[in-house]
Nucleic acid binder design. Structure first.
Lengths: 109, 109
DNA sequence: ACGATTCGCTACGAAATAAGTAGCAACTCT
DNA sequence: AGAGTTGCTACTTATTTCGTAGCGAATCGT
C-alpha cells in the first residue's frame, strides 16, 4: 500500500507538486466519500462501511490507513473522525455541493 | 464503460445525490488530473497524454469519453478543452491548490 | 459465568480497472 | 512519393477493488 503524499514521488510524476498528490489521493476510489461521511459525524469502522454503500472492509481498511498517514483522519474513542487538516479539506471542497447541483441541472437539459 | 452522472444510479447508491456522482467521477484515476491540465490550455490527445505522465492511451481514451459525456470536456479544432461547466468545476476546485500547500507543510512537521 | 452480539480487522479468490506496448488509418509537410 | 504526426484501437499483463468468510477481542444480556 502506498499513500500518496506531497514530497514523495507521486506515481511517476517526479515534480513532487503537492496538488498532484492531492489528485492521486482523492483519485482513489472511496477516499473523497469517506471524508465526506466523516465530515458529518465520527463513525466506527462498521458504521463507516455501511454509510459507504457497504464497501468492502479490505479496501476500507487500506483507505483508513492512507488517510491516517495523510493526517486527514484519526482514530478516537468515538470512532474515526477528521483531523483539523481533514476538516479544512472538506471545507475547501464544500462548494462542490453547489456545483454538483448546477451540473445536474445542466445535464438534464 | 459507465460514466457516473447525477440522476443515474451511482455505484449502488440509490440516492442519486448529485455530489455522489461527482465523487464517483472524480474518484476515477486521472479524471481530476486531466481537467487540471486542460484548465491551463487546450491540448491534443497526445499532448494531453504527455502532460499526464504518459498515461496509457487506452485509459485516456475512455476518460475523454466519460468527461465528454459529463459535458466537462469538448473536442475542438484546437484540441480538447474544458466546457463552461468544466471550467466552473475547476474554479470551485481552485482553493485546493492553497490547501495542498498547507497540507504539505503540516505533513513535514 | 455463559453464550450471543458486536467490533475492528485480515485472508483470499474473483471481478473490474489501469498500464504498457504495438500498430493502423488519416492527415500534413516536404 | 516518403516521412512524420495525430487520434485512436487491440491486446496482454499488472494492479486495484470487490465480495465473502471468518477470527480474536470487547461488550452485552441473563
Amino acid at each position: 500500500m502506498t499513500t500518496p503524499l506531497p514530497n514523495k514521488s507521486v506515481r511517476g510524476s517526479s515534480s513532487g507538486v503537492a496538488i498532484m498528490a492531492v489528485f492521486d489521493l482523492l483519485g482513489r476510489k472511496w477516499n473523497m466519500r469517506i471524508l465526506w461521511e466523516l465530515h458529518k459525524t465520527s463513525l466506527s469502522f462498521r458504521a463507516l462501511q455501511q454509510s459507504c454503500d457497504g464497501m468492502s472492509p479490505s479496501v476500507l481498511n487500506t483507505r483508513i490507513k492512507q488517510l491516517t498517514d495523510a493526517k486527514l483522519v484519526i482514530s478516537s474513542p468515538e470512532g474515526y473522525k477528521l483531523t483539523a487538516l481533514g476538516t479544512s479539506l472538506m471545507e475547501t471542497l464544500d462548494p462542490l455541493r453547489d456545483w454538483s447541483a448546477q451540473w445536474k441541472e445542466q445535464l438534464s437539459k
